[in-house]
Nucleic acid binder design. Sequence first.
DNA 1: CTGTTAGCGCCTTCAC
DNA 2: GTGAAGGCGCTAACAG
Lengths: 349, 349
Amino acid sequence: MDDRSSGNEPRGRKRHRAGGRVTLSDVAREAGVAPITVSRALNTPQRVSDRVRARIDAAVETLGYVPNLIAGGLASAGTRVIPVIVPSLSILTFIEVVHGIQQTLERAGYQMLLASTDFDLDREAQLVNTVLGYSPSGVILTGLRHRPAVGERLREWGRPVVEIMEHGDNCIDMSVGVDGHALGRFMADYLVGRGYRRMLFAGSNMERDYRARQRWEGFRDQLATHALKADLLEYAEAASYRVGVEALDAALALPEPPDAIHFSNDILATGALLEAQRRGVKVPQQIAITGYLGLELGEFLNPSLTTLSVARTQMGVEAASMLLARLDGEQPEPVQRDIGYALIERGSA
Amino acid sequence: MDDRSSGNEPRGRKRHRAGGRVTLSDVAREAGVAPITVSRALNTPQRVSDRVRARIDAAVETLGYVPNLIAGGLASAGTRVIPVIVPSLSILTFIEVVHGIQQTLERAGYQMLLASTDFDLDREAQLVNTVLGYSPSGVILTGLRHRPAVGERLREWGRPVVEIMEHGDNCIDMSVGVDGHALGRFMADYLVGRGYRRMLFAGSNMERDYRARQRWEGFRDQLATHALKADLLEYAEAASYRVGVEALDAALALPEPPDAIHFSNDILATGALLEAQRRGVKVPQQIAITGYLGLELGEFLNPSLTTLSVARTQMGVEAASMLLARLDGEQPEPVQRDIGYALIERGSA
DNA sequence: CTGTTAGCGCCTTCAC
DNA sequence: GTGAAGGCGCTAACAG
């Protein structure tokens, strides 16, 4: 006979009960049903009769039951948690995407576990491992480039994975992003079309942020098709207004100053624009300035900033939506989405 | 007899094994020890002999074992997850605090679960309930004002709780923040000391963001002690450069325009400053402008922006540190920390 | 539509 | 210092 049926008290074990929370069994007892019925009433209400469901709902209400998602996760694998892994939380771009993701997930009853890699792919691989330990329902990570182990593990894991920021054809499962090369090429053509000839690309943190480097490569390559050569001004540190200021000063101090500078983001471009203003350098007559991001601020600068805008919040919304759709059993098409970009033509170029 | 001892195969159940992950038992088998020994080797290495520990470490390595934190959490209550609940992810202030928290937590091997309330206290209460379902190791939430149920539940829960942003004497467990009234009073005194007399306070989203309202109240009350009256210009929408622009226009259109405007944040103040520049309004001669936040951008505006700075990232770091210290069994003193503020005196006032 | 049974992976208690 | 047994709270599989 199963020893549980012997009437003995459980030898004085009195286990921890996390803060004495109400459990599903408590609800079942209150409602006079089996625990599994409560589980069903909560997760698949249509499979429980109206009368029983009403009793259960009432019991949930009176006891103040809140599901222990950890237990649910252990039993069913799937904790309604979505880890989101980004390179940095101090860069506006990622913040905005994260915002879109968070809004969308939360609305659907999922929670976001946010982690940052500091642009380190090894750290990313390690983080992926760690977060899989939480039995998440899906994963969102940044970029299409990862350590080989990441793709392998995620693929065999079998749950939905969305890669954001980058557009290409080698994603693990699904992706939403932009084509950095295309962005660079577009801007090169635009500036050439406006009559500029001596082009400078100024970027920061490009050693680590390979997506900024892709924009530079696209820019450079497209200029080459016009038989123009572009220079690169690179700063190791993270983007800041100060770096933008320095970049403008450096550009103007060149033996042959450029007639246009394209910055790898609006923060740098803004710093440069404000410095030009301070120094009395005419923009765009003496030097044109363009950015990348489409920040609201650019609209109010004098002159206003011409910039290439990417719908970052929307990117986050779409990433989360694709993931949720997959969790709902749908197969969203296409699996690799190019979010595109839009030129905001203003006064600085 | 316990039916498990009958040699039958488990009737073909083949349960889900989340992606066939290596479990602690697998490691135990590989190392030739009991599962519990592996558990100890991982959690309390000093309680396992060196030889056995070495074997276990090797097994962990070869199998690529990654702990299932969900299971650990269920068994021991404590998942190394810290939910962080903030009002909004589109407001810079919170982003920066979150950044500080995240860095600190991640460094200590904890993960951040990020949720936002949209400034809704009912939503906050609901979120607290939900995240407690993840058996977190602690909780960080925003502000000192909550629904009564939140404080009760969190207190009886018994794990560390840190409230951020606000300083006061009625926290649930621990807190780090600033005293909004003091901030407002300080700025009032400063502007009075600089000779300004007709003061306007311009803010956005103050209906929902009561901390901005506290700054206004402090500002107003302190001016009253100087026998000065302050006006309030309030916008319902969220802060943006555009609102700053509108606020300046509105202020200048007043029958008796103010000689100084204190904005509830640097975004608004920046918009106003840029608009003043565009219109050729002299700052601070014709009108003084001050902000709150201490954004880097203010340094590069023309004129540069005088602003009250709060060490937001540092606040996040301290919040997380306090929490971690408590988890390590320490009792950090003091439990209610005032992070303070600093005036950045620049050209706009 | 509802209940029984077993177990997710780990850790706590107790025993040696 | 190591191991055996049981259970954390929930749900999948099977049975009625």
